[in-house]
């Protein structure tokens, strides 16, 4: 311990501190979030471009803003190893992807394959009544 300098001690202690926030990070996060929100809003409000393209663009803008806020507001990925916070966050994303993606995949297939059209349903019910 004889080689400890006052600077070394600061570094040693700071490595065990929760991530320190800086004003620069919050300003970057805030300004880019506003820009992303406004561009998404204007795109949707004026129905700019084709519908398919617009859905894609809005989704991309939301995902960019999600990453921006995760990094600049929630300080993900700025900790010292072991990066448990990052690992838990990525695992959450995986679980959400499976739940949301899986549900949509199954439900749209069900709608497509099983759900009869209204006309077919009426025909079926009439036939059941006649029996």
């Amino acid at each position: 311990m004889s080689s400890l300098t006052s600077e070394n001690i600061d570094i040693l202690v700071s490595q065990h501190q929760p991530e320190n926030a800086t004003l620069k990070n919050y300003v970057i996060g805030f300004v880019s979030s506003i820009v992303l929100t406004m561009s998404a809003y204007l795109l949707a409000y004026y129905h700019a471009g084709g519908r398919g393209l617009l859905f894609g663009l809005l989704a991309v803008l939301a995902l960019i803003q999600f990453s921006v806020q995760l990094i600049f507001f929630l300080h993900v990925g700025k900790e010292f190893s072991p990066r448990l916070k990052l690992i838990v966050t990525l695992f959450m994303m995986l679980v959400v992807l499976i739940i949301v993606g899986g549900s949509l995949w199954i439900m749209y297939n069900l709608n497509h394959r099983v759900m009869p059209s209204t006309k077919q349903m009426v025909q079926y019910m009439n036939r059941e009544d006649n029996l």
């Binding site: 929100t37 998404a40 809003y41 949707a44 409000y45 129905h47 519908r51 617009l54 859905f55 809005l58 989704a59 803008l61 939301a62 803003q65 999600f66 806020q69 995760l70 507001f73 929630l74």
Partner: peptide, 21 residues
Amino acid sequence: WHFLDVVWIFIFTIVYLFGAL
């Protein structure tokens, strides 16, 4: 608090903006 704002990004996009489309 930041987390609630992150969730709102998706509510704004999926519920409101997609809803308008």
